[in-house]
Amino acid sequence: MNGTAATVRVKVELFGTPRIHSGTAAVELAVPYPANRGKLVAALAKQCPALLGHGLKEDLTDLEDGYVFNLNGLAFLGEADFTLANGDSLLLISSQAGG
């Protein structure tokens, strides 16, 4: 998953409602460099418009309340901005962990 000088290639894995609505478990994206939260959300919405209102805010600014990104299955990213590297995998999951 190599990007160009102008893009960073990442994978977004979908779980729960986003997976049901988009009909896919994962998408690969080329995000403009430097790849940050806002650019990732915009690229994801463009490739997977079914996620609008089901994980992504309709105004494309961020995730909806109740959703969170996790980086490579390890770190939860909270609300802060972040930068991504080629090959990163982001998990889009519900922030409600209980059950």
Binding site: G16, H54, G66, S94, G99
Partner: peptide, 19 residues
């Protein structure tokens, strides 16, 4: 009925397995 409960309304707690 907002986003904070969407997981439970749409899939229920069984959504946890894959995550």
């Amino acid at each position: 009925l907002g986003a904070a409960t969407e997981k439970y309304r749409n899939l229920g707690t069984i959504a946890n397995v894959a995550v």
